[in-house]
Amino acid sequence: MSSAATGRRGADRLRELLPPLGVAALTGAVFAFVGTINPNEPGHYPTCPFLWLTGLYCPGCGTLRTIHALAHLDPVAALGLNPLAMAMIPFLLFWWGRWVVRTLQGRPRRTTLAHPAWLWAFIGVVMVYWVVRNLPFGAFLAP
């Protein structure tokens, strides 16, 4: 095999790695930005539209403050602000890592993220979390 063919394959593999590396770079930029500009101070970020309209917390309420806490290496505070977001981090890291490994192995991208039953279960968990965090006994889930 010629070195030109090997070099071309290496360039193709690098090109295929650009999307997962781009996601990692974007995630790092978000953490850097939110870690620098404190969401606990009013006026830096818009209010959650659902919270503004209804006075109730959506499943994402507290996520900016969770990211800020994680950027400042305070996972306990982050867990108290949005436990669902914290629970999702290992899954997101797993899926991203699987994407990178499959790309490095030259395996084709999967067109499905997970089995539909798992996705429906996740939607169910989000819906239950959404309701429970707005009930009096679920106040510990509120940001």
Results as ranks from 00 to 15, higher is better:
S2H: 12
S2F: 06
A4S: 12
A4I: 09
A5M: 04
T6K: 13
R8C: 01
R8G: 07
R8W: 05
A11N: 00
D12C: 03
D12F: 00
L17Q: 03
L17K: 10
P19A: 01
A25L: 11
L26A: 15
L26P: 04
T27V: 15
T27Q: 01
V30Q: 03
T36G: 14
N38S: 14
P39Y: 04
N40A: 15
P42N: 02
Y45T: 04
Y45V: 02
Y45A: 01
C48A: 08
L53T: 09
L53S: 10
L53E: 09
T54K: 07
T54D: 09
G55Y: 09
L56N: 06
L56M: 13
C61L: 05
I67K: 02
I67T: 08
H68R: 03
H68V: 09
H68P: 00
A71P: 08
L73E: 12
P75D: 06
A77S: 13
A77C: 00
N82T: 10
L84M: 11
M88A: 15
M88H: 03
F91G: 13
W95D: 00
V100L: 11
R107M: 11
P108T: 05
R109Q: 12
T111E: 14
T111V: 12
H115T: 02
A117C: 08
L119I: 14
L119Y: 01
F122T: 11
I123F: 14
V125M: 05
V128T: 11
W130D: 12
W130Q: 03
V131Y: 10
V131F: 09
N134T: 08
P136Y: 12
G138Y: 05
F140C: 01
L141W: 05
L141T: 03
